[in-house]
Design a protein around this nucleic acid. Sequence first.
DNA 1: CGTATCCTGAATACTCAGGATACGGTGCCGTATT
Length: 479
Amino acid sequence: MAEPLTTSLQAVFGYSQFRAGQAAALTALERGQDTLAVLPTGAGKTLIYQLYGYRHAGCVLIVSPLLALMTDQVNRMRLAGFRRVAAITSLTSFGERQTILNHLDRYQFLFLSPEMLAQPAMLARLQQLTLSLLVVDEAHCIVQWGPDFRPDYLLLGAIREKLERPLILMLTATADQATQGEIAKQLRTTPTVVTESINRPNIFLDVEHVANQAAKRERLLTLVTQLVFPGVIYFSSKQLASETAQWLRDQTGLTVAAYHAGLSSEDRFKIQQQFMQGDLAIICATSAFGMGIDKNDVRYVIHYHLPADLGSYAQEMGRAGRDGQPSLAVLLYAPGDERLPLTLNQANRPDDATIQRFYAHPQAFSQDDPGVALLTFYQQHGISASAVQALFERRERERARALDQMLAYVHEQRCLRTSWLAAFNESAPTHDQQCCAPASVPLDLAALGLQRKPQAQSPSAAAQPDWLTQLRQLFLSNN
DNA sequence: CGTATCCTGAATACTCAGGATACGGTGCCGTATT
């Protein structure tokens, strides 16, 4: 299509200008270059493949990690006027699935999970189709989930070959150099990389060291009592997320809910809806809460446990302040907190002896064991025992390294933002009063304009000091 | 692997030392049997 990109943008979306990164990614794709776009949430990543799909004949195939994301995206695209859009998942009825598969060439956009795409029958059907573009959404999942959680992610490279190497677009909000390299390697390509800064200047960064678990709990209560809501508190334990939600409800009278993978999908959906509508002040969540959550007025994100790595931390704390208003990211740390992520790093991973025994006598193991399910997958795909050992070892080393980076952030004495951004090869703006409070520096909520008025039942924009008032407060508190 | 909590026994305290135990995330998938 000879039409300029901006003409298409105007025609399809009615916008006159691209947002940062969109034009660069599209230009690379138009030149036929595989593209890895590392763009922050809200940068409009989906527009890139929507517009590409509009400009080119053939089907855009999108690999997405979550059913909820696919359903969401299909609905949103239909509302936006795209009609030839579908997702095929385990929730799709047999009849509907047949209808889609029988008229596959009528679809412009098709969403699949990596597991669904890996099914031989599905792949065979897709091989008959002309693909204009293969999109891997949330591409960091290849690295984060591939080796020891959702191994089908490691098949994408081979699947792409079987689809006769269509042009590929990899999308993610956070990927450091190592992650970018690993994504490219897995998909067997040398892509054009388009990146935008992941810095979020309106999020104040705070790390607080406490003496023990009891002190952490008390500090959490104090914060939650004083902070303007809504807020999200992240845990690495489902049980503690639930218990703390109940405890905070009792202690504060606020509306608090827990969100984790142990809940039914109905409950999860309901809680997410309530939170989006502003009916909940606080969510106590595990890492299950996040992808696809698009609420722009979250005022704070507190981490009660250490996130797995700085990339996850960027994603989770980045759910605060999407509206650009002053917001807060607190990381609470008690000595010994690194034990939990260390243990989780090994949770699904069978040790070398178990791998050997499994490869010798797979039938002696219970398929209910998640580690065994992984091994079954690898054995069925012809991966040798020693290759599996190497895979797990490598992943564990990466996780250990990521945890070390996380701890360096926790113990940073000077500027948290500098420490955080350095991991993504970015330099931070000059440190100032609105930047961060490392462990040795106390947090001043009033100065940030995030302190709840004792009388106010719910936060409103009017109740917050305007930015001039905040600036005055900053200058005064500086004396 | 270490932290928090529960349990036990000695003692009979407005309890406590010391040992045992439980605990710790993320999701996709035809999938066969009562």
